[in-house]
Amino acid sequence: MHKLEIYTTGELADIDFLHEIGAEIIGSLAVGHYRKFVPATETDSAASPAIPAMSLAGMKVEVFTASLDSSLLQRLSSTGSVLDVRVHRCDSVDFCDSTAECAEIPSTYVDPPTTPDSSPTKCIVEPFTAGYLRMRVETGKNPDCLTVIFRSLAALDIDAQNGRKFRQGDTDFITLTIAQTNEKVLRRLQEEIEGGMAANALQDKTRVAAAPVSGCSALFLELQGSSSMPAVKLTAKGRASAIRAAFHEEIIAFDWDVSIGRITGSGNKVEDLYYLKACGHNPVNEQHLTLLGTRITGENHA
């Protein structure tokens, strides 16, 4: 399969012959595509070099086709209105219902009986793809929300594959893709998260991840972003849920607030990026990261 990108100064009708090649998809959209060219001049180039000019194509045509031969490319290059042609190799994605991967995902999760919603925190778990569930948590603005969530996941030995966290106004939204597990464990997870988010709940709990995380290796913490919006990149190998729980436990100790979080990783690898709200009395610096690394692994990271 090939993808052709054709930048043309004319209309789709000028390259109507594209409909005859048996393409899967032909699409057009308006763009502003500039290409530099040097016009040929008859004067001595040393005395007055030709001034480069710009050509503008107003339309981009994208063609996805299984068949690509040189005669089509020759015809396109000889068409006056065609300014630029780019060819990329690609594959088609099969969305057919008959493939085994598209079979109905068996759900082990049953909606709990509705109860009056007295807690402002909502934790919803839904089927996602084969072997994975999607967990969405919505809670009031709470710097401890990620700590509660990862601590609950670590306690129940559930790994989070990917996710994100962001804040809109006074609400924190956390979405995570977690490994599929049974209904009983999911109910416990919901109870742990909703209970943990309750006001002052964390003040009563002892720190679960006080000890360094065993089996954590290749831990690397990097300070990114600007002074007004610092970011900490966490990469490590080991029990992902335990590493993240320990990291966020220490974040609370430093009085930092994660406003945006991007959680990625696979298997036993962690690769997260957390944007911290600038804290005037305790700005993030390299010494903090060194201390953080030492506390998480138990090894000296100086």
């Binding site: 393409a23 999607r134 594959q161 990917n162």
Partner: peptide, 18 residues
Amino acid sequence: FAAGVVSFSTTEMQVFDR
């Protein structure tokens, strides 16, 4: 984004689909 994509953009196009 929950699945872990890096970026995502949308465009409305006029499309010829066989």
